[in-house]
């Protein structure tokens, strides 16, 4: 499966009236999850989050692509 690089956020049962809302909903959740953590705790949280999401995606071909893209330009 090839990686989806188009905007892809949505929430079941939620109706959006602005195209920007789903991505903004996610981004706010992400930043709020880090609230009041130290930098070190945030780093750990991010690592755990990547592992959780990677397992959920499962397909190693997709993950390989994501890993490659994430390293580009870093």
């Amino acid at each position: 499966m090839s990686i989806n690089l188009n905007p892809n956020f949505s929430e079941a049962g939620k109706r959006y009236f602005s195209a920007y809302s789903p991505a903004d909903d996610f981004y706010e959740l992400l930043i709020n999850t880090h609230r009041d953590l130290t930098d070190e705790q945030s780093e750990l949280l991010n690592a755990r989050l990547i592992l959780l999401l990677a397992n959920h995606i499962g397909d190693i071909g997709t993950l390989r692509e994501a890993l490659k893209l994430s390293r580009e330009g870093v």
Binding site: N4, L5, N6, P7, N8, S18, A19, Y20, A23, D24, Y27, L69, E72
Partner: peptide, 13 residues
Amino acid sequence: NHAFGRALVNSGR
């Protein structure tokens, strides 16, 4: 390079 990244950038809605 990626459309999903552009959707995350928020310089005012």
